[in-house]
Design a protein around this nucleic acid. Sequence first.
RNA 1: GGACCGUUGGUGUAGCCCGGUUAACACGUCUCCCUGUCACGGAGAAGACCGCGGGUUCAAAUCCCGCACGGUCCGCCA
Length: 455
Amino acid sequence: MQRTLIIDTPKNIGKKVTLAGWVNVRRDHGKIIFIDLRDRTGIIQVVFAPNKKNPEFQKLAETLRSEYVAQIIGAINERPKNMINEKIPTGKVELLAEELVILNSAQSLPIDLNAEHLDMGLETLLDMRPLTLKHSKARAIFKAQAEIVKTFYEFFSKNGFMEIQAPKIVPEATEGGSEVFSIEYFESKAYLAQSPQFYKQIMVGVFERVFTIGNVYRAEPHDTTRHLNEYTSLDFEMGFIKDHTDLMKIITEWLKFLVEQLSANCHDELDAYGVPLPKILDDIPAISFPEAKKIARKISGKETDDLDLEPEEERILSGYAAKELNSEFLFVTHYPAKKRPWYTMPDDADPKYTKSFDLLFRGVEIATGGQRIHNYEQLVQSIKSKGINPDKFKFYLMAFQYGMPPEGGAGFGLERLTAKFLGLANVKEATLFPRDMKRIDLLLHKEKIIKEEKK
RNA sequence: GGACCGUUGGUGUAGCCCGGUUAACACGUCUCCCUGUCACGGAGAAGACCGCGGGUUCAAAUCCCGCACGGUCCGCCA
């Protein structure tokens, strides 16, 4: 018989159906046993009542434990009025089991998957990732994350952007600055891409508007709640822009669409975390870097680096924007040229600053973008001014020799965005299998100990 | 790399300040009882040489020193 999904059970009252899923929990009352069965669409209560014709059946039901995988055939019955469970969408019905096939057993769980919260340290949470991801609150994170990616794809596709696949193996330490992972590449050396930057720019010369969603790699030895050594970047790049404000406009439009879709499709997931969705103003406030610096200094009373915003200042500015400007998002524009890559377009009024921006959301930088230099000669000059030989970028520069429109783009950190929408303390919680200095799936030092013990 | 905090059954914590005999609690696990629960309930049981090494002491989970590991913040970082 064809499998029925749990979400569809209320439509099948009185019918005999086949359900398949995991045992969420067993409530054994002796003669009568209740199982909460879970599949990808929901949870339903299954009732095992004494069966005189087949006493073995009840014994088999008694062996069911959490996370056992089972196929159950039975009749969907309406529950008596006083036994309706308001907490679940299928609370008005239940399955009276007639046949049970155990598709797979499960070892006893080291954690309580039915507890309201996953009450454990980050280390344990990640060490047991294949199991802890099954918890409803963990699943909620990645449902919301998938929605973010989906809206990015939909929005930019609708607006004339084409999806491209950027290579992850690259020949040079792309833009200099941040550390990259080197890999053996046959007889020579190559690197893992720290961003799709060069390739999305080249493709603007071909398709005018492009976007790409993919992993990027940073070999920086950072150890914070907002950094990963492998993360997912949502990138777009577009030609024929006036300046960076065109980019900020399209980002604002996407964010509006995103919040709308999250509200419509991830209501339960957001509810589980209790963090309200942000309001997106028609114009997200934008303040220039020098202005932002002044505000941050005034509030903190601290003298800080002239060229960059410190994490504490980013938090201060976010708080300021939320309180004074009525927006949880804040653009900071015109970062100093010294702190931006060489392809960043300088500002006409004062070339010490650039036509670039960061987007702050709830205290962290979630996107970076700006207008790029599209003139070949100017770009070569800019590379030289950083003391780099332009020959290293011959391949990339070719795009600018043969007709590059005025262009720009931006990149979002998917995990940071997810974490901030749900109010998670650490981006690693918003990463299925986070890679950091200490961990690739398991903690690296633990792996070492295991290897040494084997020797 | 720096600062601070931490490390106690499978998981989360209490006990440590003020050293003392069976290391406590909750969840999970196992056994038994239970026909209406929905994070079912009841009775019982198993499970920890208290991160590692050293010191002080008649006596150390508890005090001292060193190390390892983790967490948070910072640094670093498009």
